[in-house]
């Protein structure tokens, strides 16, 4: 299959959403784990769902997968409520669980043959093995594979049914960097197959690399959503200019219009909404004084900074209660 063109994807996206949540709630006794979530995920998207442990992330995913029943709100996944959707609905989804080990005693090929038998129109075992790069391990016992290979088998088992919607729950947790990059290629490949992907992850780099859109959940609510570039108003946020002054010059000597927001060991930070103008002021002043500004750097907040500030706000709010 070739990569869908943007026109093709646009046509797809105009159809009914793959996942639609309105006011989703879930309580366990007195504790409300999910407190009113709205989400819409379109066909062909890679959607990343981020949040700290205990934020309601796993609960939400398990409701979407049909393992738990919502306490309130409406849930529609591929047009059905997952809680009472039957076998026909399950044929259309694939799941990589956060924790699952291999089928004991079976080889990689046997595992895939077993699972392929559950679907009326499975993908071929050989093709699926190639997709995740496990051709050479086909006859190995699944429980003898390395951690990264076992995770690839998990992905293969989620793909064997050739479903439209794939859930990936922290697919690369515990991977070394090279195994993680290999997995990213596999996940990015799902986009080319036209799949919709619902991804949860702890790694910001992973979300930034793969996701079309991101939502952040904290304390049972969505605190931000957007593209990796715009999440949490990242695109409008202020830049930070930092540099190191020579020992002989104090911060007071800097032009008045620069807003110094940090100073430590002669390293100064200036927070600004107009970096071009302030940079001009700063460098103009430095040239006049005959100074070289060591370590001069202009930076935007990283996705990780945005995520941490979003999730720590709710965490500190929680602590205050």
């Amino acid at each position: 299959m070739t990569a869908p063109t943007s026109a093709y994807r646009l046509a797809y996206m105009s159809s009914e959403p793959v996942i639609e949540l309105r006011g989703l709630r879930k309580s366990y006794g007195d504790h409300e784990a999910v407190r009113g979530i709205d989400l819409t995920i379109e066909r062909g998207e890679i959607f990343a769902f981020l949040g700290p442990n205990g934020a309601g992330k796993t609960t939400t995913v398990e409701i979407l997968e049909g393992f738990r029943e919502a306490s309130g709100g409406t849930v529609s996944v591929l047009g059905r409520n997952p809680w009472n959707a039957g076998a026909r609905w399950r044929e259309r989804i694939g799941i990589v669980l956060q924790e699952s080990s291999a089928e004991g005693g079976l080889t990689v090929h046997e595992c895939l043959t077993l699972y392929a038998g559950y679907y009326r129109h499975p993908r071929s075992v050989k093709e699926t093995l190639a997709l995740v790069g496990l051709e050479d391990q086909a006859d190995q016992r699944a429980n003898k594979l390395s951690g990264g290979q076992q995770r690839r088998l998990d992905v293969a088992l989620a793909l064997i049914g050739d479903g439209e919607l794939i859930f990936l729950d922290e697919p690369t947790t515990g991977f070394d960097p090279s195994a993680r990059r290999a997995s990213w290629d596999v996940i990015a490949g799902l986009r080319d197959l036209g799949k919709t992907v619902f991804l949860t992850t702890h790694y910001m780099e992973e979300a930034e690399r793969l996701a079309d859109r991101i939502a952040v959940i904290a304390d049972g609510q969505i605190v931000a959503h957007g593209t990796p570039e715009t999440l949490g108003g990242r695109d409008h946020q202020q830049s930070v200019i930092s540099f190191t002054l020579p020992d002989t010059i104090g911060v007071d000597a800097l032009p008045q219009q620069l807003a110094v927001t940090g100073e430590r060991n002669q390293t100064v930070s200036i927070t600004t909404a107009s970096p071009t103008k302030d940079l001009n002021t700063l460098t103009g002043w430095a040239l006049e004084q005959g100074l070289s500004l060591d370590d001069l750097k202009v930076s935007r907040p990283s996705l990780e900074d945005v995520y941490l500030s979003l999730t720590s706000e709710t965490a500190s709010g929680k602590a205050a209660i």
Binding site: A87, E99, S101, G104
Partner: peptide, 18 residues
């Protein structure tokens, strides 16, 4: 109990098999 603990039962339930 082992299959359940290892998530294998959960994964099988995620497939169309009744």
């Amino acid at each position: 109990t082992t299959l359940r603990e290892n998530g294998i039962l959960k994964r099988r339930r995620a497939t169309p098999v009744p």
